[in-house]
């Protein structure tokens, strides 16, 4: 794009793209700035004018150049004050200077940094962390209560409960005698790594413990936010549709283990377990799947064995 006049095309959805490059178009206008550079000076660029790298511009001094020929890479120059780094690539008196600052950062990079810090902190203390995700009502809390009661004699445990409102779930967990902290996200639809970092400050799980993070019931958003957990575990119940892995693929793609819960209800519902598993494996061929019932305890021994195996593996792989 010509950055003096704004002509040119870029594949930008709205507005004329500041980042677009010229695509071989012809300028329909005359350049208003008739460069009256006195080019008989002997380009000694060591003097104190601001860094203005003529080499990048490919200036042939007859000024028959086209702006698209400028290798617009002055934007990489970071901190330097460069009057030649305006959008126009030149300093034009009286023309407002805009400057492009390269950022090249992922929008989720802040969360990723917090997640890394959480993970470092948890692994340093040998804490095995599972992030439980599902839609609301899949039975996460019931599953967790049952799991805690069964595993309490074997591991020190702690729970972080995420919900938009109420501390009902944390109270249900505390009733088992295990420390639990409720995080209310307010309007937020997911837990993020920053919230979990604060929760860890308060909860302070014991070394070598098993930490469960029960995420906000939502099959969409929690998939995108790494909390610093060891594994994401997605819970799906047989009262939901078997096509949920296809409808909300991100969550199933992000998880390492899927628990198909409420198996005790299978005789009463039209739910095709095989089709459900096939759908889940289609979006995530590495996904491990266990069929469980928090109510009857069916399949839970396999879940506990999975936890023990993976916790041991996590400890073994910690330097």
């Amino acid at each position: 794009m010509c950055t003096v006049c704004g002509c040119g095309t870029a594949t930008v959805e709205a507005g004329t793209g500041a980042g677009g490059e010229a695509q071989g178009h012809e300028h329909p206008h005359e350049h208003p700035h008739d460069h009256s550079h006195a080019h008989d000076h002997d380009h000694s660029h060591d003097d104190d004018h601001y860094p203005h790298d003529h080499a990048d511009h490919g200036h042939s001094h007859d000024h028959g150049h086209h702006h698209a020929d400028h290798g617009h890479d002055h934007v990489h120059r970071g901190e330097a004050i460069d009057f030649g780094a305006g959008l126009a690539g030149v300093h034009v008196a009286g023309l407002d200077q805009h400057r492009i600052v390269r950022i090249e950062r992922d929008i989720l990079s802040k969360n990723a940094a917090f997640a890394r810090a959480n993970r470092a902190r948890l692994t340093a203390r040998g804490i095995f962390t599972l992030n439980l995700v599902s839609s609301p009502g899949s039975g996460k809390t019931s599953l967790l209560v049952r799991t805690i009661l069964d595993l309490k004699p074997r591991f020190p445990l702690a729970v972080i409960e995420g919900d938009q409102q109420t501390s009902n779930d944390a109270e249900r967990i505390r009733a088992t005698g295990v420390p639990a902290l409720q995080v209310n996200t307010g309007k937020g639809c997911h837990l993020d790594a920053h919230m979990v970092g604060h929760a860890l400050d308060t909860l302070d799980p014991r070394p070598a413990s098993l930490l469960f993070i029960e995420n906000v019931g939502n099959l969409v958003c929690p998939a995108a936010f790494d909390l610093g957990e060891t594994h994401k575990v997605v819970v799906l119940s047989v009262t939901e549709g078997e096509d949920k892995p296809l409808k909300y693929p991100d969550m199933f793609a992000a998880a390492d283990l899927m628990l198909l819960n409420k198996s005790d209800l299978l005789p009463y519902v039209d739910f095709d377990v095989t089709a459900c598993m096939a759908n889940a494996l289609r979006v995530n061929p590495r996904l491990q799947i266990l069929t469980v019932s928090a109510r009857t305890g069916e399949g839970l021994q396999a879940f506990y064995a999975w936890i023990e195996a993976h916790a041991a593996k996590a400890v073994a792989s910690t330097p």
């Binding site: 500041a18 407002d96 805009h98 492009i100 390269r102 950022i103 090249e104 950062r105 992922d106």
Partner: peptide
């Protein structure tokens, strides 16, 4: 078939900003 690993199309990046 579905044996496809996504390599592009999932971006969520801030490329640059224009400042004065």
């Amino acid at each position: 078939r579905h044996h496809v690993q996504m390599t592009a199309g999932d971006e969520l990046r801030i490329r640059e900003m224009e400042v004065t």
